[in-house]
Design a protein around this nucleic acid. Structure first.
Lengths: 226, 226
DNA sequence: AATAGATAGTGGCACAATGCCACTTATAAG
DNA sequence: CTTATAAGTGGCATTGTGCCACTATCTATT
């Protein structure tokens, strides 16, 4: 028996993160409609009861409408709701964090129109519509926190990467400088990456290229880093 | 401009956990109405757009309708949604984990009618309505995981507790046996509890009673335990 | 009063993962 | 051939935990 309460609006927003030129970037779209027309937004949309079987479905569909990019990692961060965050009324949004590998990120061809990557540092809070600046802050916090004790920054790397690149990516996501030897031991001892036998093409001394071991998911390190 | 999609139902469910007689217990209510009449449910309810300013508000209100118990710790776990979890249609529920200190837990007087504590181990999946067994499983996983590297089990303890009691509670929430000396060092070095100067009243040798330092929240240990 | 039993609490060393830092190795550029 | 730069290693210090025996304090029993 459904009571006649006014139902809130339920949406899904996805923060797509990637690293480009040694900087975190986020995928945004520019709003075509009021409110906040012309401002930046995280890709997102309404839950469609008739199409989506669950929230991950919604996330996938909403993403597919904007871009063909398949994230390499996706995680539900938090559900944010209030009667003030959207002028249209009481809304709740389920926030996802999606990580895109550099290999896919550099494949600009698959990026939908209206989508644009923005440097995370250069984005102004007031450029973002609704409370998306708050959502972005939550995603950043989650990424920083989990990068300290899990292997999720690996999902931002290109398919094949050197250990130095890996360290650089972890330094970006943890906002801290890391020690070379400690980092390498930590990563290699976890047995989540493997040497491909290939060497990097550029640079001084050629670095061995590694890849994530097939089938390996998120690894939890026994200690925090840094 | 709100499109005419059918809006999903949005609810909040709260898993109230406490420890009693060295066992994890959960607060349930017995459903008075169909569907699932007579079965057990986590306390929860619809988001009321006119009353609640955000989800924590909803959680508080829903809780207050059933019992006067104020949780000592509350955390949003996950939002679970699908078109199959509730026969009434497409629903989404924001799941919270709430920890109740033993001091409050033993204050049975404030427990609302219809509410009942159940040993977590003795609860059968098919006693629970909807997908509440799944929700409960998610909460258990979260509690176990976070108990390994944070101080949240402290919120289940009575206001004043011995280190042995603290260890026992951590052993319950982590599902593992812990080593006495290691545990004590870990807890005391974190500087999140303080000696009250009081001694326990029962037992052989009297234990020093500790309490959470005022104003101290969740502590993250540098390493996992156990 | 003496003793046994139980729980509280400590000392000290081993071990595991990381921090630190100097060192060697490989490659490109000049 | 030399030099600069980035890759990669050796080895010890530090930190937090595991382990285990030991001491301390209280109750119950005889």
């Amino acid at each position: 028996m459904i009571k006649s309460f006014e139902k809130p609006i339920l949406t899904v927003d996805v923060a797509y993160l990637s690293i480009h030129n040694a900087q975190l970037e986020i995928l945004t779209i520019r709003r075509q409609n009021e409110p906040f027309k012309g401002q930046l937004a995280l890709p997102g949309g309404y839950v469609h009861c008739d199409q989506d079987t669950d929230l991950r479905d919604t996330a996938r569909r909403v993403i597919a409408e904007k871009t063909q990019l398949e994230p390499d990692y996706i995680e539900q961060v938090e559900t944010v709701a209030s009667n003030t965050r959207d002028p249209r009324g009481w809304t709740a949004t389920v926030l996802f964090m999606a990580l895109v590998s550099q290999s896919k990120r550099d494949n600009e061809e698959s990026l939908g129109s209206g989508c644009q990557w923005h440097k995370l540092d250069s984005i102004q809070s007031n450029e973002l519509c609704f409370d998306h600046a708050v959502l972005l802050e939550k995603v950043k916090e989650r990424l920083i926190a989990k990068s300290r004790y899990t292997s999720i920054p690996l999902f931002l790397l290109p398919n094949k990467f050197s250990l130095s690149e890996a360290q650089q990516f972890f330094e970006i996501t943890t906002l801290s400088g890391l020690e070379k030897k400690s980092f390498r031991r930590r990563l290699l001892d976890a047995e989540i990456v493997e040497d491909t036998g290939e060497l990097s093409k550029t640079g001084r001394r050629k670095a061995s290229l590694y890849q994530i071991k097939p089938g390996v998911g998120v690894h939890f390190f026994p200690r925090m880093i840094g």
